[in-house]
Design a protein around this nucleic acid. Structure first.
Lengths: 144, 144
DNA sequence: CCTTGTTAGTTACAAAATCAACCATTAACA
DNA sequence: TGTTAATGGTTGATTTTGTAACTAACAAGG
């Protein structure tokens, strides 16, 4: 009754996913870090604003599933470094709208280009069918 | 010349992988945390020893790609809580072999059972073919 | 208006990860 | 040998994250 089945750590999805996530983001991380001194939370906020335009912190949080304190700090740092500005909503003064500055836009476009190339490079190892299954599975696992 | 192509954050592999990794490890994390007060680094070390038997910290690091300080601290905590013991190699006194105690073994077997069930549950969303493509792709991305 | 509850966002403090410098030991080799 | 380099592992300082408690603003009902 030992239940001593072979358990392969390498097959355990949470572990495997984590290794793949870590390894695959390393080289991209190096770029946004070296080039703009950004943290992971920061490029994410930057991208959200770059892609979807003016948003509140709340909206970014809902989509990215980042906790609001992470976002609050990322926004503070991005503002300090002049990548974005905040504007209070005059009708509901709890809200503030975030907009990329020209510098923020430039950084976004630059990093988007890098990300696009980077994603393409990662994808070369797989067929179109594999890629579509992979992305689909990941979206399901991520519940998004 | 604007290059203003649609960029979908949800399709960017490093992002997608990270979301999937985070989401999919949440429920498992709750178990090793609530049941044994362990951190992610700690269950990993525990599993390495449970699966592969007596190892040095170095060997665990090579396989898991965890930084040696993480391992050092995880080992220290696991030793404090009597999940493992250390034995110096008398021929090369820099090395120390790590072994699970009976308690460590028990915790490992318990968590392995949980992990097996958990992995099975995650897998139910996919066909065998999808699973094999997924695991393969992840191993390739993780370079393992 | 006044309480009570909710929401958006921040802050304070504890927990954890990162990075560099650090022992102790062994290896390499002049 | 004696010096320098490399290795396994630990420690301390700093940075980041996580958790909870906190403002400030709005909303709803009396």
């Amino acid at each position: 009754m030992d239940k001593n089945e072979a358990f392969e750590l390498q097959d355990f999805l949470p572990y495997l996913l984590n290794q793949a996530a870590e390894e695959s983001s390393l080289a991209f991380q190096k770029i946004y870090k070296d080039r703009y001194g950004m943290l992971r939370t920061e490029w994410r906020v930057l991208f959200h604003l770059g892609i979807y335009g003016r948003r509140t912190a709340k909206e970014i949080g809902r989509r990215s599933k980042m906790h609001k304190t992470k976002i609050s700090r990322a926004v503070a740092r991005l503002e300090e470094r002049r990548f974005l500005t905040r504007t209070r909503d005059e009708d509901d003064r709890r809200l503030e709208y975030l907009d990329l500055t020209a510098m923020g836009e430039a950084a976004y476009r630059d990093l988007r280009k890098v990300a696009t190339r980077y994603d393409a490079r990662l994808s070369t190892d797989f067929s179109d069918q594999e890629l579509s299954i992979l992305r689909n599975a990941l979206r399901k696992l991520a519940r998004m």
